[in-house]
Design a binder for these strands. Structure first.
Length: 648
RNA sequence: GCCGAAGUAGCUCAGUGGUAGAGCAACGGUUUUGUAAACCGUAGGUCGUCAGUUCAAAUCUGAUCUUCGGCUCCA
């Protein structure tokens, strides 16, 4: 072409067009806008795809320059950090073969097969050192097109990189690229990868390797066993330190640790794994939560029921659990008959519904139960209170007509909102739709999915859509909880069920006298009391709000001669149903305060000569410290308000 | 279930082949104390369990149970 274009035009984030010389990279573009922007830039989003900063731009590209302030920049940093990790490991362990190394939330990992070496924590230090060496050498990340994939696959195979060969083979029709790490123009290492990456290893300012664990190639336990190294990487030392602090804070809040420290619960060898012993303090918290739950459900039109812990095999044949849930169920033999320890409450609730005939006027019927269920969980998956083999679901099943369905779902969402906000838990919703192996008619699924969406929208709730993630028997809404330090937990779930009504053939009599099948909704708000206890322990760092606290107030007399006055105060508070104790030990006040703080008792009342003389009390609040002098009456008003409002 | 690590006093941890240790908690005594730890003393363990090697095992080997970090799965 004789008329070579000397400039091209790209479209920036704000929609403006910019002329740049042909052959310009994203970095050139950034420089042309401002030097400070160029300094901060990490990568690009070109037409919606993340690309290297040095990608050559084409005419008409929509370009967004991604700087370190952009969340997406971590994708570049962490994925590149993973490559540096892989290069370091291969430098140190000659037999190491690399598998996969993505960026993950807050960090990255890389999987290796190392036949002749089992990685140890000491290795991590060595590997970090080698990584730092690569970083300091300012090696360049360079993306090159694989011109001849088959030849490249052969080359990978020849050097034993079978995972890379397999990956490339899978992607050979998708413009495969290699990434090279280069020092002084010489390639030191390469990986098959589509990117994106940072420009040079020097940009990795602060990283740390965190742990080693096992994994399988492609997550498939029949495939090769791999060793995985987890790490984290940040744009600055300060960010890394802040992250490490966050990890430490989370560790301090770990409900398993606090459970022991605060004498909340235990799991013991003799009683068995995944089976919880609720000690008095946590049992008290649970009772308070249960009472709150029962009250709220009664108020919202639910009827409370109780059902047995075991049932004949027959029930589970009808429900289909023996077919679909067998590997999670505990079986037992009684009088030559097979019984099952219940893994779910739903078949019982269906049987209650089915025990009488129902008119369309009776619906909706909402049956609720704090039902304890047992599920066989694989031995490696148990986790404190959060993942156990015996747990109590705050379960309910709604049987309603099609025309009532949307309102019922809205009602559940409202309840979820009401309960979570009481604990100061933020939440988000996810809608999972029809999977491949679904049962039930398309018509039913469409009706149900549309209804769930309508209910979510009607409640003004944003949600993430997970296509194909629903249960085989119906679509569902999951709620994710966010605790005080931003961690996410599985919370409430609302599931539609086309299966059980059919299997149990439940019916109601409609206006025109015809028999109709009700819509059935499963829902749990806490999910399980065990899990919500774990969430709340970590959310409150063990410092439960006043209304949940087993011990609400402790009286700390300064010396023995203040015991009488302390008793008077304690008696007065006890009459108001305040849960109160007196620390009568011959210890210093400082020591008593320390113990009360460690025990996380919400209020301390300190009684000495001054208080006895002035006929008042000194109040100290947990964590906040001295609140000063109070009249007893004023203090009672204050805490009664706090309790009745369930303040947090 | 799989890969790896660990299990010593109520708790946190030290002890790597030769008589089981510390701090805190508990218990006894002294101290009578003003907003996060007074002092002295006492007691407490067949070192997860079962086998094995050895003159001798917390320590080495094997099995097993449990826990932890992941994988997979899930409320």
């Amino acid at each position: 072409m004789s008329q070579t274009q000397t400039t091209i035009s790209v479209i920036l984030k704000d929609g403006t067009k910019k002329e740049i010389p042909t052959g310009s990279t994203g970095l050139d573009l950034a420089k042309s806008i401002s030097n400070s922007l160029a300094k901060k830039s990490v990568g690009l989003s070109v037409n919606g795809e993340l690309q290297d900063l040095v990608t050559v731009l084409k005419d008409g590209d929509r370009v967004e320059i991604i700087t370190q302030d952009d969340e997406r920049s971590y994708e570049f940093l962490r994925h590149s950090s993973a490559h540096v990790l892989a290069a370091a490991v291969q430098n140190l362990f000659k037999s190491a073969k690399i598998a996969n190394g993505p960026a993950i939330e807050d960090g990255f990992y890389y999987d290796f097969e190392i036949r002749d070496h089992q990685l140890t924590p000491e290795d991590l230090l060595k590997i970090e050192k080698e990584m730092q060496r690569i970083v300091d050498e300012e090696q360049k990340f360079l993306q090159v097109k694989v011109e001849n994939p088959d030849k490249q696959i052969e080359e990978f195979k020849k050097i034993g990189e079978k995972f890379k060969a397999e990956n490339l083979n899978e992607h050979k029709d998708h413009n495969p690229t290699l990434y090279l790490l280069q020092k002084d123009g010489k390639t030191t290492w390469n990986d098959f990868c589509k990117g994106p990456h940072i420009t040079t290893s020097k940009q990795i300012k602060a990283f740390k390797l965190l742990s080693i664990s096992g994994a399988y190639w492609h997550g498939d336990e029949t495939r090769e066993k791999l060793q995985r190294i987890y790490g984290t990487s940040w744009w600055s030392k300060e960010d890394l330190d802040a992250y490490i602090n966050r990890l430490e804070e989370a560790e301090k809040r770990d409900h398993r640790k606090l459970g022991r420290q605060l004498d909340l619960f235990s799991i013991q060898d003799e009683t068995g794994p995944g089976l919880i012993l609720w000690h008095p303090k946590l049992a008290f918290v649970r009772t308070q939560i249960e009472n709150f739950w029962r009250e709220l459900h009664s108020k919202n039109g639910y009827e409370l029921v109780y059902t047995p812990h075991i049932a004949r095999n027959e029930l589970w044949n009808i429900s289909g659990h023996n077919e679909f849930y067998k590997e999670n169920m505990f079986y037992m033999n009684i009088d030559d008959q097979e019984y099952v320890l219940k893994p779910m409450n739903c078949p019982f609730h269906v049987k209650i519904f089915d025990s009488t005939r129902h008119s369309y006027r009776d619906l909706p019927i909402r049956l609720a139960e704090l039902g304890t269920v047992y599920r066989y969980e694989r031995s490696g998956v148990m986790h404190g209170l959060a993942r156990v083999r015996g747990f109590t679901q705050d379960d309910a099943h709604i049987f309603c007509r099609k025309d009532q369905f949307v309102d019922e779902i809205k009602g559940v969402i409202k309840l979820v909102d009401e309960i979570y906000s009481k604990f100061g838990l933020e939440y988000s919703a996810e809608l999972s739709t029809k999977p491949k192996d679904a049962i039930g008619s398309n018509e039913n699924w469409e009706f149900a999915e549309a209804g769930l969406m309508e209910a979510l929208k009607g409640y003004g709730l944003n949600y993430q859509l997970n296509p194909g993630d629903g249960a085989f028997y119906g679509p569902k809404i999951d709620f994710k909880l966010k605790d005080a330090i931003g961690r996410v937990w599985q919370g409430a779930t609302i599931q539609l069920d086309f299966n059980l009504p059919q299997r149990f053939d439940i019916k109601y009599t409609d206006k025109d006298g015809s028999q109709q099948q009700p819509v059935m909704v499963h829902r749990a708000i806490f999910g399980s009391l065990e899990r919500i206890a774990a969430v709340l322990i970590e959310h409150f760092a063990g410092a439960f709000p006043l209304w949940l606290s087993h011990k609400q107030v402790i009286v700390l007399p300064i010396t023995d001669r203040h015991l009488d006055y302390a008793n008077k105060i304690a008696t007065a508070l006890k009459e108001k149903n305040v849960r109160i104790e007196i620390d009568t030990r011959a210890e210093s006040v400082n020591s008593k305060i320390r113990d009360a703080e460690l025990e996380k008792i919400p209020y301390m009342i300190i009684i000495g000569d001054n208080e006895a003389r002035e006929n008042n009390i000194s109040v100290r609040a947990r964590k906040k410290g001295d609140l000063g002098k109070f009249n007893l009456e004023d203090f009672i008003v204050k805490i009664e308000k706090e309790i009745s409002e369930k303040s947090i």
